[in-house]
């Protein structure tokens, strides 16, 4: 064969093994996910939560009541002015976070040499989106039945489950992020009044912490 002559050469051998390891990793996992997209999403979420708190406090009249708003509202869901403001706020955070994730991951994929939309990315996206879509619809049902207090905990729990499912196809840190979101979501179910606070912790602080960790471990000095 072509490489017969230096088969036993240590350099060639360790080169082959490194090549094999890279191929196994690259073909089965989406490794281009950038930690910076997590940090960016976290900052957007914190900003969105602060804005929501401001609007709620203004609507209710007491600045301290901002985080206990959900508990005060029971009964049939009404699309009042405040609900619309909060919905627009949430959608803006989501869109900005997704745009950021796309941009940072696209930048990262040029360094890892992995195509942005390869089979591993598709697998990651589907495994994330299916539980997430089911969770989104469940949250709409909670709103519809007049249980807005459970929406924040439910988004955290479903997001955690979706991440746990997707973590098999990407970097290991996602698994820890998933478990943290799940724990936080379950705890939040018992502090229904503090929905906004838990939401800010889960989507804001946890994203920044794990995103920063991923960046330090995989990207710092390489990008």
């Amino acid at each position: 064969m072509d490489q017969e002559g230096h088969r036993n050469d240590t350099g060639a051998l360790s080169g082959d093994l490194a090549h094999i390891r890279t191929l196994m990793e690259r073909s089965s996992r989406f490794i281009s996910l950038s930690g910076l997209s997590g940090v960016f999403a976290g900052v957007m979420a914190l900003g969105g939560a602060r804005l929501a708190q401001y609007h709620v406090a203004r609507a209710i009249g007491s600045p301290d009541d901002g985080v206990t708003y959900d508990l005060a509202r029971t009964g049939v869901f009404q699309l009042d002015e405040l609900s619309i403001t909060l919905l627009v706020d949430a959608i803006m955070v989501l869109v900005l976070a997704l745009l950021g994730a796309f941009w940072f991951t696209w930048r990262r994929s040029r360094h890892t040499g992995q195509r942005l939309w390869d089979p591993s990315a598709r697998r990651l996206a589907w495994n994330l989106l299916i539980p997430l879509a089911a969770g989104g619809l469940t949250c709409l049902a909670l709103l519809y039945h007049g249980l807005p207090g459970l929406v924040a905990p439910a988004t955290l729990v479903f997001y955690g489950l979706a991440l746990l499912n997707a973590s098999k196809y990407t970097l290991d840190e996602i698994r820890w992020l998933a478990l943290s979101e799940l724990a936080l979501g379950v705890v939040a179910c018992f502090w229904v009044g503090a929905g906004l606070l838990f939401w800010a912790l889960g989507f804001g602080v946890l994203h920044i912490v794990y995103g920063g960790l991923m960046w330090m471990r995989h990207e710092r000095g390489k990008a």
Partner: peptide
């Protein structure tokens, strides 16, 4: 005894079915 064959096996052992084009790239 060839880098390409090692590569083929490396990709196929950690994936179910892999398309020709994906493997080639």
């Amino acid at each position: 005894e060839s880098r390409v064959r090692l590569g083929i096996m490396a990709v196929l052992t950690v994936n179910d079915h892999v398309e020709h084009g994906t493997l080639r790239d």
